[in-house]
Design a binder for these strands. Structure first.
Lengths: 210, 210
DNA sequence: CCTAAACTGTTAACTACTTAACAAAATATT
DNA sequence: AATATTTTGTTAAGTAGTTAACAGTTTAGG
């Protein structure tokens, strides 16, 4: 199964969540076109992705929901779990925290960091928040694998460097500032402003084209 | 210049912000490899993008920062501005609000919505927040072009339908639930869980491969 | 039992995007 | 003044991702 395309990985994550939903509704089998509809993609896309991961369904019955969930798990989850830290506990950091907390068993938020960690602890006592100054120490102690950056653009570079020095293996950067990391650290960046400007562009274009 | 690739649009948004920074630092010209470095992409990529938008620099001096900013503006901005609304003012909604408020002159957040709009108004009096029940009315009144969805997954479908019915031309969906919209509404979706799971996959893979 | 319908799995064609290669031109160096 | 260097713009090649087409197989219906 060697090298799955990036886009397939993304879709697998989404298939799994859709499938978990189906399972909860008591659905045991699903057709490629049903799964496709849930993600607004095509049935061929689904079949191709599943072909790539070597899963084969039953003709006329479709795919076994439970089996497929498990198979996707073996591909994208790590057996021993992955430890995640969030840096920056402003609105975005807390949004991410609430999103992820306790949802995926194999991904756990084991620490959060903020310059004003005392304020965070006071306002949200349930969040385990440390001083950003202690980042390197705590990340090593808690064996954090992935750091999520939700700090202001100005601190992006500093924080990325600190994360790298602490030994994380992956960074998810929500800062609008692109950061540089050594190639053995996997970097994923997402920029909300770009997304909104992109939507704005196509909305404008649509008006112009009509 | 007809049809720019999606990826080019995204990069243009990012080039512009990098260039605005340069301008603020008094830099008047920039080489393709400098701009590339700021975005961790290649110089060829930059040159190709600029070729596509028909901008040409000066040999040995590079690109004129001011000119390029303006040109990108004519491409991605709408002359009359674009009105944006955020639906769901939890942590994520407020993060988005703070991000965008007052930054881009051509994109303005003209309204926000929340089921518990009274609480929001009380806690954040500076935010103009309306009851989600009034969405359709207010969106029409305020001529909102783009709706950003930051509500829980359960409400995704309902809110998307409401936005479409109110006549928005673009939707940016931050819900983990994919939504369906008519094809004349431009839809962009981003799913944080998928991104994190993707990073986790590649972190795991890196371990396995070594 | 035969035919039609409904699906899957897979190859092949296509489309989108990125990178390489290089000619042309401006400046710098000798 | 001649040569080397730097940088752009563009074509061509290469890579990644999507979609079409269809053979093959199971079930359903006549």
């Amino acid at each position: 199964m060697k090298n799955l395309p990036h886009k397939t990985i993304e879709r697998l994550s989404q298939y799994r969540r859709a499938l978990l939903n189906c399972l909860a509704n008591g659905k045991t089998h699903i057709f490629s076109h049903e799964l496709a509809k849930l993600q607004h993609i095509t049935a061929v896309q689904v079949r191709r992705d599943l072909m790539l991961i070597g899963y084969t369904g039953t003709l006329r019955k479709g795919y076994n929901v439970k089996e497929l969930i498990d198979l996707i798990g073996t591909i994208i989850d790590s057996e021993n779990g992955i430890n995640v830290a969030i840096v920056g506990m402003g609105n975005l950091g807390r949004a991410l925290y609430n999103y992820f907390s306790g949802k995926r068993t194999k991904l756990s938020i084991v620490a959060t960091f903020d310059k004003r960690y005392e304020k965070i602890k006071e306002d949200y006592p349930e969040i385990e928040c440390y001083n950003t100054a202690e980042m390197e120490k705590i990340i090593k102690e808690k064996k954090v694998d992935i750091g999520i950056m939700a700090v202001p653009a100005e601190s992006a570079t500093t924080i990325a460097d600190k994360l790298v020095n602490s030994g994380v293996k992956g960074i998810l950067n929500y800062t609008p500032k692109p950061v540089n990391v050594p190639k053995d650290v996997y970097l994923e960046e997402y920029d909300m402003i770009t997304s909104l400007e992109k939507v704005a562009f196509f909305v404008k274009k649509q008006n112009d084209d009509v």
